[in-house]
C-alpha cells in the first residue's frame, strides 16, 4: 500500500474509533488516536498475516500491551477483513467479542492475547519471540506499549530479557504521547531519558515522529535488518491526534465523545 493510501486508511480508522466510542459511551480515544498511524502501518504494510486465516501458523504476532487502546486495534482488524465492520459497534456491550480490554476468551479473530493489565505485553512478546527462535522460525513479534505504561517495573524486566536473549525478531513500539491518566508524564512520573534508557538496556533504539508514515515504515524496516538486538521504536505522538479538541488533553484518555463532539470530530477527520 502506498503512503497516501495508508494515510487515508488512518483517517478512516480514526473515524471508526470516534464512532465506536460514541456508541459504546465509554472507552479510550486518546491513546487510540495517538497510535493510529503505527497500527495502520503494522496491519496494512508491515505484518505478515492473513485476515482470512487468523490462526495461520506462519503469521507474525502483534501484542497490544496497552490494552486500553484496543479501539484502534479493533478498527484495524475490521478494516483488514478479520471480521465485519458492523461488529465494531458492539464494543464494550454485553456478549460482544470486542471487550473493553481485549479478551482472548471471546475469540475475536486477530487477538493473540488478553491485555489490559499494563506492563505485561513485552514479557509475553519476549516469550513469543524466544519460542520462534527455538523453532528456527523467521516470524517476527511486534509489541505496542504506552509511555505511561513504562512506569511498570515488569517492562524493564522484559527489556533486560529481550536484550539478553538477543531477540532481533522482536520489535517494540512506545507510543510516546507524553500524557498519562493523571497528567503529563513529566509531572506524574518522569520516564526520561527514554532513548538512553533503552540503549543502556541493550536495545536498538530508533526515534521517530509517530504520525509520519514514511518514518514509521523506515523504522520497521530498520528493525527487520537488525541482527543482534531487539528494536524499540520510540514514536513521538500526540495524544488525541487528529481531533483538535482532544489533542494533548489528558482528560481524553478514557472518555467517550458525545454526539455533538463526534460530529465535530468527524468534520475534522477528512
Amino acid at each position: 500500500m502506498e503512503n497516501k493510501e495508508l494515510e487515508k486508511k488512518a483517517t478512516q480508522i480514526r473515524r471508526d474509533i470516534v464512532l465506536m466510542l460514541q456508541e459504546s459511551k465509554s472507552g479510550h480515544p486518546g491513546g487510540s488516536l495517538s497510535s493510529t498511524e503505527i497500527m495502520v502501518a503494522l496491519y496494512f504494510s508491515v505484518l505478515k498475516h492473513d485476515p482470512q486465516k487468523p490462526n495461520w501458523i506462519e503469521r507474525d504476532r502483534f501484542i497490544l500491551s496497552k490494552g486500553h487502546s484496543c479501539p484502534v486495534q479493533y478498527a484495524c482488524l475490521a478494516r483488514a477483513g478479520y471480521f465485519n465492520r458492523e461488529e465494531l459497534f458492539t464494543l464494550r456491550k454485553l456478549n460482544s467479542r470486542l471487550q473493553g480490554h481485549p479478551g482472548k476468551d471471546k475469540k475475536l479473530p486477530g487477538i493473540e492475547v488478553s491485555s489490559g493489565s499494563l506492563g505485561q505485553g513485552l514479557s509475553i512478546s519476549v516469550g513469543n519471540a524466544l519460542g520462534f527462535k527455538l523453532d528456527n522460525k523467521l516470524q517476527r513479534v511486534y509489541c505496542l506499549m504506552g509511555d505511561g505504561e513504562l512506569d511498570e517495573g515488569q517492562i524493564w524486566e522484559a527489556a533486560m530479557a529481550g536484550a539478553h536473549y538477543r531477540l532481533n525478531n522482536l520489535c517494540a513500539v512506545v507510543d510516546n504521547n507524553g500524557l498519562q491518566i493523571d497528567g503529563c508524564l513529566k509531572e506524574v512520573m518522569n520516564i526520561e531519558p527514554l532513548r538512553e534508557k533503552w540503549n543502556s538496556f541493550g536495545w536498538n533504539t530508533i526515534e521517530i515522529d509517530g504520525h509520519k508514515m514514511q518514518e514509521i515504515l523506515n523504522a520497521f524496516k530498520a528493525a527487520q535488518e537488525e541482527k543482534n538486538k531487539p528494536t524499540v521504536i520510540i514514536a513521538h505522538t500526540i495524544k488525541g491526534k487528529g481531533i483538535s479538541f482532544m489533542e494533548n488533553v489528558a482528560g481524553w484518555h478514557g472518555k467517550a465523545p458525545s454526539k455533538e463532539e463526534t460530529d465535530r470530530a468527524l468534520k475534522e477527520l477528512v
Binding site: 506492563g119 509475553i124 524486566e157 522484559a158
Partner: peptide, 14 residues
C-alpha cells in the same frame, strides 16, 4: 512477573 509473561509467550508458540 517477567517469568510468567515469558512462559505465557512461549505457550503461545505451542
Amino acid at each position: 512477573q517477567n517469568l510468567m509473561g515469558i512462559a505465557a509467550g512461549l505457550s503461545l508458540t505451542g
